[in-house]
């Protein structure tokens, strides 16, 4: 327990979390602080490229094994399964309609890549290594949850035309974040440690500083979302935003342990299973389920679950993984 408090304390006082807190405070206090849209986009491109490249270089160094394939498969299954649990929980705990519950559930099966990046940064800071291919697992977990949510809706409505057309499927599978993450992973894998050494002064040394600025922006966005959407956060909905990550992380822990992943790998799978999407899935929901209320799913995933995972969730998942896996 003391290890958990120590980890949580270190995490809360890290520049990354304090930057996020600054953004959150500024938005809630109605400050005019803002990160220009193009700068925020540039920061996210940098982070996705850096994390993908480093993951690929790590795999090149370590090599492929059967566990990689099983981990990808497990990621897909987790992403497809978690929305079903989230949906049942939402129907039980909240008064959300079937449509809104399915839309929210999709977010909780998919992942937040920023939470993943923050978790890798915390692990690196504590000297805990992880499988480089977890980046690929993160990419594999983006889309299946969307299919599960659409299935939940069409099953309930008897199939009224809502669903996935080929254009939407292409937009999801080839969205910029996935292409960049997987592309950088492949470049990192192809060029290996030599390639990483060539550009490490760009993608390794400044990484945490860039992450701080990006999380400052995320804090601003989360704060604005909370300010605007606080009216829809009834106690049941709010409780779901904290409970579901804990349930998801439990599944991540069980699957990671079954796969025989390292301590860092298990912790990252827990983080992925606990996190909720706020980029890819909301866009897909606006196209496929436009009647679902975006204020509910965006406020929950960005205003409740993201800050929870960032501040308390990540140290908690690492501590639990350390207790179960050892190390």
């Amino acid at each position: 327990m003391s290890e958990l408090f120590s980890l949580a304390g270190d995490n809360l006082l890290s520049p990354i979390i304090l930057s996020f807190a600054l953004g959150l405070f500024a938005a809630l206090a109605r400050s005019d602080l803002s990160i220009p849209e193009a700068v925020a986009k540039g920061l996210s491109i940098y982070l996705l490229f850096a994390i993908g490249f480093k993951g690929g270089a790590s795999v090149a160094d370590y090599g492929f094994d059967a566990r990689l394939g099983f981990s990808l498969l497990a990621g897909v299954i987790l992403s497809a399964l978690l929305p079903l649990i989230a949906f049942a929980l939402l129907r039980l705990m909240t008064g959300l309609s079937r449509l809104d519950a399915a839309a929210v559930a999709a977010h909780y099966g998919s992942i937040s890549i920023v939470t993943f990046v923050a978790a890798t940064s915390v692990l690196e800071g504590r000297g805990i290594s992880s499988e480089g291919y977890m980046v690929a697992v993160a990419a594999a977990m983006e889309a299946p949850a969307i299919l599960s949510a659409l299935w939940l809706v069409t099953r309930g409505s008897g199939g009224d035309g809502r669903g996935m057309d080929s254009k939407l499927m292409r937009e999801i599978m080839l969205n910029g974040s996935i292409v960049l993450l997987v592309g950088a992973f492949v470049i990192g894998w192809a060029t290996g440690e030599d390639g990483l050494a060539e550009i490490s002064s760009f993608i390794v040394a400044p990484f945490k500083g860039v992450l701080c600025l990006f999380l400052l922006d995320m804090g601003l966005v989360a704060g604005r979302g909370l300010r605007g959407g606080s009216g829809i956060l009834r106690p049941g909905v709010l409780a779901f935003g904290v409970l579901m990550p804990l349930i998801g992380s439990g599944f991540g822990l069980a699957v990671g342990a079954m796969l025989g992943l390292s301590l860092g790998g298990v912790a990252l799978l827990m983080v992925l299973s606990a996190s909720a999407s706020y980029i890819a899935v909301p866009a897909a929901m606006r196209v496929a389920l436009p009647e679902a209320n975006p204020s509910i799913y965006l406020t929950l995933s960005l205003g409740v679950t993201f800050p929870f995972n960032l501040t308390l969730g990540i140290p908690l998942y690492i501590a639990i993984a350390q207790t179960v896996i050892g190390g």
């Binding site: 849209e37 995320m218 966005v221 604005r224 605007g228 706020y278 980029i279 866009a283 606006r286 960005l302």
Partner: peptide, 10 residues
Amino acid sequence: NRSGQISRAH
């Protein structure tokens, strides 16, 4: 408001 969005998708 455009400034409150995290991607063009919104």
